[in-house]
């Protein structure tokens, strides 16, 4: 076995294990941490395919930004996820039997033979250019149409999020300077004259 193949299987094993733990671990913080591990290993697999830029952006964006935010939310919300997944353990036996059956059927259909793919090797561009350059060039030329549409999807996401969460105008606690300067001491402070009481 070549060293690269060994690294691939090693990373894939970790990836599969981490993904399984994401859905099975009881503690939501652990699940989120396993998701971080899964992303990190997936970026390793991409690195093997010589897609350095994608690998680094996966770490930067998903591990660095998205998952940290996610962890914060999970820690702040203090969800008792065990209650949310009450049915999970009782359905697990039946679910896993069906899943195993399906995996076995798929294996039978594919005949157990190694996938004979159209191109086994990583497609080589033949031009000595960096990953970033190649992706950028493709994105803005050949794939410009889906790229623009993806931005529309993000826009829809923003619109939908605002529409679903925004309530009526909230009463702001900001002060109005114009009203502030007109305030006089006698509007705010009432001086009361009280006779002093003798101490007994």
């Amino acid at each position: 076995m070549e060293f690269k193949t060994f690294v691939f299987y090693f990373l894939s094993a970790i990836l599969v294990f981490a993904s399984l733990r994401v859905v099975t671990s009881r503690n939501p913080v652990h699940a989120a941490l396993y998701l971080v591990l899964a992303f990190f290993t997936a970026s390793g697999v991409w690195m093997l395919l010589q897609a350095e830029f994608l690998a680094i952006s996966l770490v930067l964006i998903y591990v660095g930004a998205v998952m940290v935010l996610f962890l914060f939310v999970v820690m702040m919300l203090d969800i008792n996820i065990d209650r949310l997944r009450e049915g999970f353990w009782s359905y697990l036996p039946l679910g896993s039997i069906i899943a195993l059956l399906m995996v076995a059927e798929m294996a039978l259909v594919l005949g157990g033979s190694y996938f004979d793919l159209f191109e086994n090797a990583v497609p080589q561009t033949g031009i000595a250019e960096s990953n970033v350059q190649a992706i950028g060039r493709l994105m803005f030329t050949e794939y410009v149409y889906p790229f623009e549409l993806a931005s529309v999807i993000l826009l829809v996401g923003i619109v939908a999020a605002v529409a679903l969460t925004q309530r009526e105008k909230r009463k702001t606690k900001a002060v109005s300077p114009s009203r502030q300067v007109f305030v006089k001491a006698k509007d705010r402070v009432r001086v009361l004259q009280m006779p002093s009481e003798p101490r007994d």
Binding site: Y143, L149, A150, I153, V156, G157, A160
Partner: peptide
């Protein structure tokens, strides 16, 4: 296939909301 998928997601996301 990519455009089909993106169009489908654009439709579905709008409909979910």
């Amino acid at each position: 296939f990519l455009t089909i998928y993106i169009g489908l997601e654009l439709l579905s996301l709008s409909l979910y909301a």
